[in-house]
Structures are given as C-alpha cells and as structure tokens.
Amino acid sequence: MAAMAPGGASSSEIYKGHAKRLLLPTWLVIGVFLLVPVALMATYSVLTKEFRGGVIWEFSLAAYDQFFLDRGLFGDEPPRIEWTYLTIFWRSIWQAGLATLLCLLIGFPTAWFIATRDARMRTVWLLIVTVPYWVNLLIRTVSMKFLIRDEGPLNAVLLWSGLIDQPLGLINTNLAVQLGLFYSYLPFMVLPIYAAVERYDFALSEAAADLYAGRWTTLRLVILPVVRPGLIAGCILVFVPSLGAFLAPDLLGGAKSFMIGSLIEEQFKGAAGNWPFGAAAAMILMSIVMVVLLVYARAQTREATA
C-alpha cells in the first residue's frame, strides 16, 4: 500500500475525536428529512382514523386490514382477499415499468447522440433536453392534456392531414398516462446514461469491431455492459417517481388508470380522507421500492466482488 500522504495523516490527527460532531449536519438532515417523516408515517398507519381527516391516537391495524382484506360491506363476512387496491398497485407497477422501458428506449439513443457530439454542442443539447423541466410539472402535465385531447392540436393536425378521420380519443386512457409519465421523467433517464456514455472509451468499440463483432454484437456485448451502471441509475430514477406519481394519472388518466399515488393523495385531501389508510398505502409502496433497490444493491456488490 502507498504511504499515507503527510497532509492526510495530520488532518486525521487534528479531527480525531471530533468525528461525531462533524457528522452532525449529516445526521440532522437524514433525521429531519428522512427518519422523522418515515417514523411519522409508520405511526399514522397504525392509528385509528378520524372521520373528518386526521387520526385518533389509538392503535389499530384497520388500515392494513382494509388494504388487503375484504370483509364485506358491513364488515361481518369472512375475510377474502381485497383486490381493489392490489389491482391499483399492480397497475402502478406496470405503468411505471412501461414508462421506464419507454424512457430507456428513447433515452439511450438520445443520450448516445448527445454524448457523441463535440464538447460545445453537447452543452447545447443538454440544455435543450433540460429546459422544459424548468417549468412546473403541473403546468407541463396540463399542457400535455391540452395537446392530446380530442379538440387539441395533435388531433387537429392528424385530422387535417387526413391520417385519421376521427379523434384518437387518447385522453383518459392508460396510454395518456404513459405519455405523461414518459414526458415527466425522461431527463432522469437521459442524464445518467449521458454521463456513462461520455466516459465510454470508443476504442472499446473499435476493439470489438477489430475482433469480428458487428454493430449489434458490439452494442450487446460491449457497449451496454460497460454503460450498465448509467442504464440502471436511469431506470431507478424513472421507475421510483413514476410508481408514486399522481399528477399524470389524475390529469390524463380516467377511472381505469387510477394509480397508487392518486390513491394516497386522496386519503389526505379533503374531508373524505383516511389518514391511516393513506399512510399504510405509502408504507407498502415504500417497501416495494426498498426491495427493488436492495436487489439492485446486492447485484452491484456481487458484481464488484466477482
């Protein structure tokens, strides 16, 4: 091992014994913005609901029971599995998954294109990709609604050009939600992939071609594995917020595209809400996300030690 640099040795001497104090800001941020909110939510999920919103401080598993089990209209039937919320959950997962896939399919070529321009044009292209995101997400989602509704410009152009003879009826469909999610989170896919591709050594592609690999083989066996960390980071950054999204499904989707984010949102909005139930749904959502991230972290560690 290389000898420790003198500066490093002396600074570690100086700060010895102060490690706890120096970490204080970190713990403060993690505590206030992560641990306390999660603890609050976990607590609320096991309290009893107050009918006008809010909670009664009395332990109850009613929220989780309501989520998973169907005991009939009056709560006196033998419990069966409650499919309503599981269906919403499942729909959220595949909507988010599909949005992630769509972002990946469009985001990878986009990122590749940007990363292979010369340095000056790269900055311009990155700006072009990110500028729309300076506008509030709500405004963008509403704009999307106006664009794709039956009387909107998209249908107007298609009708005028004669490609279709009646409006597509996109609004209030899963496809509309898809489009909304895709548009909302595309940069979160493009930017990490761009960072990975920018570091990619193009001599590797030449080496692959030199060793008799055609373009697709090179993509599959060399490029994709080498930029994989960027692809995975992009997928996580799109999948996680898509899973809990409520603006796109609320504004663009119909009753059949209701997602978990909207379900949670409704529980806390207005007098009809059910705080413990919303908190329980949020806890369940968070657990799923945690499992996804843990599986990823595991895979990464295995990779690193292999």
Partner: peptide, 27 residues
C-alpha cells in the same frame, strides 16, 4: 473492420473492462 482478417493491439489496450482476461482473449 469486422470482416478483415487483421487484428490490432491498441495504444491504451482497449481491453473490455467487464470481462475476465480469458473472456477478453476468447472474444
């Protein structure tokens, strides 16, 4: 290049970082 029966040793080697030594040579 992938149809020419010539091979190259690159200046900075350009070894595939995600493959083992053996996999690199087998490529």
């Amino acid at each position: 290049p992938f149809k020419r029966p010539v091979n190259t040793v690159f200046q900075h080697y350009a070894l595939f970082p995600h493959m083992t030594v053996l996999e690199n040579v087998m490529f």
